[in-house]
Amino acid sequence: MNRRENLKLLFTGTLASGFLLTNCAPEDNKLEYTPRIEGGTVGGRTEEEKLIDQKLLSETFLNEDERKKLDVLVDIIIPADSDSPSATEAGVVDFIEFMMKDYPAYQTPMRGGLMWLDHHSEDNYGKVFMALSKSEKMEIIDQIAWPDKAKQDMEGGVKFFNMLRNLAATGYFTTEAGFKNLGYIGNTPNIWDGVPAEVMKKHGFELPEKYLDTYLKPEERGELAQWDEEANIIRSNS
């Protein structure tokens, strides 16, 4: 990379936005919500890694009943709101399906937890979970969703729901829709010049006086570094 190309990268972000464009082709209008699952991880993969991803993607862990139950559960955890989609719309169940195979320690707690939900529903309402009314479902969820208030005999259910909450949340907030909802700004070429002034002010911070002349100044980033004999870097404005 020569300096001109590098500056282009820095100031226009063309290289990066070029990459981004290939990942967000306009004709693929599902992409806003749907993460990449089908092809395995992108970038720098070894043959061994490609084979592992392909094998995991070709297998199915969750059966249809389990998927249907998860559709309901993840949307209870992360529903749609006025400006963002729900967990199912963001492809969270596909993500959970993949994680079951990628991290097999999840399998028994997940399968068993979903079964337990049916047993618990049967014991209390005489019906499996999916056959319950919305309010009955929520009565059960409320028994296991609040770890500090839950009854002691619900401990197993609480653990199951904690796992479900973790997977639903992480599966959601690692999608484009989730990033938008979190308000994350980054992962793109830029120039760091410290915390914005108004944020510094709000938290009552000032940069330490002693380093003010030492810190990087954005305008000197194109200049080739040179030092004097005392190992002081030569600054253009000093």
Binding site: A16, F19, N23, P35, R36, I37, G40, T41, V42, G43, G44, T46, E48, E49, I52, D53, L56, L57, F95, F98, M99, D102, Y103, T170, G171, T174, T175, E176, F179, N187, T188
Partner: peptide, 22 residues
């Protein structure tokens, strides 16, 4: 580009960037 993992988003990984054995 075939070796690049820099500037990738988590949704470019089916495991959302989680670690693997490799």
């Amino acid at each position: 580009d075939e070796d690049r993992t820099q500037l990738r988003y988590p949704w470019e990984s089916p495991r959302r960037g989680n670690g693997t054995r490799i």
